[in-house]
């Protein structure tokens, strides 16, 4: 297969043969296997084995408290179907994914476009927008925990000053998850910003020049050239962002000190898995929950994959 400059894939006609390589390649040389072996050993030991072992655990009543283990069949899976807390926390995770993915894409795109307009002090904007991403999660949460304090937090202080009512950022059930979203957006938007900025810089200047000669103004150029050419990057950002958002755990856990927030309104499903397995000692049941969630992530990824493939084909 070869790829043309326009990005469309050209399938070689049947019967055509690849030009024979003169030197042995990594894939055809049996020695290559030995180079990959160290990785395979680590991968098998730390990924494949735990995945299979965990799947096995979900069929047993494994206890962290050391109680004898017996085979329980699909009891764990049957239990989780009726466990309201599983569905509630799964709902929180999905809601968080929706609430965080949209602004994380729109805000990062807006920031990248603004910086790309050639505003003065490029390094400053790039640094400022990307800097929060470099902070460890505990630092980020610590900062925001104090900013969002109900009684004497900075944000409520400002709201109070301008005459608006205080918001229970960390104590109101209906706001708690939004607070986690706000923190996450501030913290990770820099990464998407960087991806968009790189994509913007890869758009050839000649396209804009041609459009300018045809009399296209700034808005026209942005809508008709920049945004369509960013579509590939947007697809990538969406996939990465959805997968990252589904994995939400650490910022919510630290922000509410493991309590799940007011009324448990900000407990993602991974925290329920953690609490069930490690705090309540029920490792077998926790495994079952995590495998159901794992299956869901795979479905989302495959769906996204199929969608982007179809889009790629229609584009060609």
């Amino acid at each position: 297969m070869a790829t043309t400059a326009s990005g469309a894939t050209v399938v070689p006609p049947p019967g055509a043969t690849q030009p024979r390589r003169k030197t042995p390649s990594l894939t055809t040389n049996p020695g290559g296997f030995w180079f990959v072996l160290p990785f395979l050993v680590v991968y098998a030991a730390f990924t494949i084995f735990p995945v299979l072992y965990g799947l096995g655990m979900s069929f047993f009543n494994v206890s962290l408290a050391g109680a004898p283990t017996t085979f329980v069949g699909v009891d764990n899976y049957a239990e989780l179907l009726g466990d309201a807390q599983v569905w509630r926390t799964l709902g929180h995770t999905l809601l968080f994914t929706v609430l965080s993915t949209v602004p994380l894409i729109l805000v990062s795109l807006a920031m990248a476009l603004l910086v790309h307009t050639g505003v003065k002090g490029q390094w400053f904007w790039r640094f400022s927008f990307f800097a929060p991403y470099l902070l460890p999660v505990s630092t980020v949460v610590l900062i925001w925990n104090w900013l969002m304090q109900g009684d004497f937090g900075f944000i409520n202080g400002i709201l109070d000053f301008v005459g608006l009512p205080k918001v229970g950022w960390l104590s109101d059930e209906s706001v708690a998850l939004t607070s986690v979203v706000l923190i996450t957006v501030w913290w990770t938007v820099g990464f998407n910003f960087l991806l968009y900025l790189a994509a913007l810089q890869a758009i050839p200047e000649s396209v804009y020049e041609a459009a300018a000669l045809d009399g296209a103004g700034g808005w026209r150029r942005t809508l008709s050239i920049t945004l369509p050419l960013l579509r590939g990057t947007t697809g990538l950002v969406i996939v990465l962002q959805i997968l990252a958002s589904l994995k939400v755990f650490d910022q919510a856990y630290i922000l509410f000190n493991g309590s799940g927030g007011p009324g448990g309104a900000a407990a993602p499903i991974l925290q329920y898995v953690y609490d069930t397995g490690f705090v309540n000692y029920r490792l077998g049941y926790a495994s079952a929950i995590s495998y159901v969630f794992f299956a869901l992530i795979i479905v989302v990824s495959l769906g996204q994959f199929a969608l982007s493939r179809r889009r790629g084909r229609t584009a060609a």
Partner: peptide, 13 residues
């Protein structure tokens, strides 16, 4: 090849 692979493996370990 074997020597190189072994070296890489040793480095990995």
């Amino acid at each position: 090849t074997v020597l190189r692979a072994a070296g890489a493996a040793a480095a990995g370990v």
